[in-house]
């Protein structure tokens, strides 16, 4: 009886993947049939969106097509976030595993670093970087990696610690398995689900952070189309062109929600213990 019930539960849980799939489809197909996102047309400036007496999603203060800008901006912002989340994953997983499995002074060093990074808000580091070398996408990605790795390190350290003290690891050791064998065959495979969930959440978090930095004028440079930049462009047009900022922000909310839902989907799909049956 439980077989059918779990398969139904899994199937109904799959709606969580729909927003991300729709998003990726739109980002792949849309560039084939849309106007240039950078073509200016001052006679068409601030055309309202469809339903407000205009067409598509309207135009911005320089007459550039909002739909095209949002598609390109979303693609750029997602790319930056994915690169940053991947870089942070490499750094954070290494740190978390070293701390959680080696223990001792290595654990203390990594924990001290994690706490210190957490004490310095990423925006302030962004301010320092901008004060020195100005705005650049590469610097922003490095900054996001430098602050984002601590999330992976915290989660994986805790997980690796509890796993290495669990009964099945003890059983494996008692049967004569070596440390390397236990690490590769018992601990790493059990860390994968947690890692994947954090990874998807982190892409969303990176998107919010990079958009904040860009909006403040300390992230991606002005000539690069990004979602934070679009909201910033619309900031001065709030009175007669509300749609520029509004659509930029709504796109960010959609992207982050889609990524968080995908992370939830992963957690449910990869968790062998169904909710309600937990010990």
């Amino acid at each position: 009886m439980s077989d059918r019930r779990t398969s139904v539960a899994r199937w109904t849980g799959n709606w969580r993947l729909v927003p991300l799939v729709v998003l990726i489809a739109v980002l792949l197909v849309a560039p084939l049939m849309m106007p240039s996102p950078t073509a200016q047309s001052l006679t068409d400036r601030l055309t309202p969106p469809l339903g407000f007496g205009g067409q598509r999603l309207g135009t911005d203060g320089l007459g550039r097509d909002m739909y095209a800008r949002l598609v390109v901006g979303a693609t750029n912002s997602l790319t930056v976030s994915a690169i940053a989340a991947t870089g942070a994953a490499v750094l954070g997983v290494t740190g978390g595993l070293l701390a959680g499995m080696a223990g001792g002074w290595m654990d203390r060093l990594v924990s001290l670093l994690v706490e210190s990074v957490l004490a310095v808000p990423f925006v302030t580091v962004g301010l320092m970087v901008t004060a020195t070398i100005g705005q650049s996408t590469q610097a922003m990605i490095l900054l996001l990696i430098g602050t984002g790795w601590v999330t992976y390190a915290r989660v994986l350290r805790a997980q690796a610690r509890s796993l290495s003290r669990s009964a099945f690891v003890e059983a494996s050791f008692s049967m004569g398995a070596g440390r390397r064998y236990v690490a590769l065959h018992h601990i790493l495979p059990n860390l994968l689900p947690v890692f994947l969930v954090v990874y998807f959440q982190q892409i969303g978090a990176m998107l919010l952070w990079s958009a904040s930095l860009t909006w403040l004028g300390i992230g991606a440079p002005i000539n690069q189309i990004s979602l934070g930049g679009i909201v910033r462009d619309g900031q001065d047009l709030l009175y007669n062109g509300w749609w520029v900022s509004a659509f930029g922000g709504l796109t960010i909310i959609y992207l982050v929600t889609a990524l968080n839902l995908a992370a939830d989907w992963l957690r449910l799909a990869l968790d062998p213990v169904q909710k309600g049956h937990r010990a």
Binding site: W215, V231, I252
Partner: peptide, 13 residues
């Protein structure tokens, strides 16, 4: 998922 800067701008508007 709501960016702080955007929420502020919308409330202000």
């Amino acid at each position: 998922a709501v960016p702080t800067f955007w929420l502020g701008a919308m409330l202000m508007m």
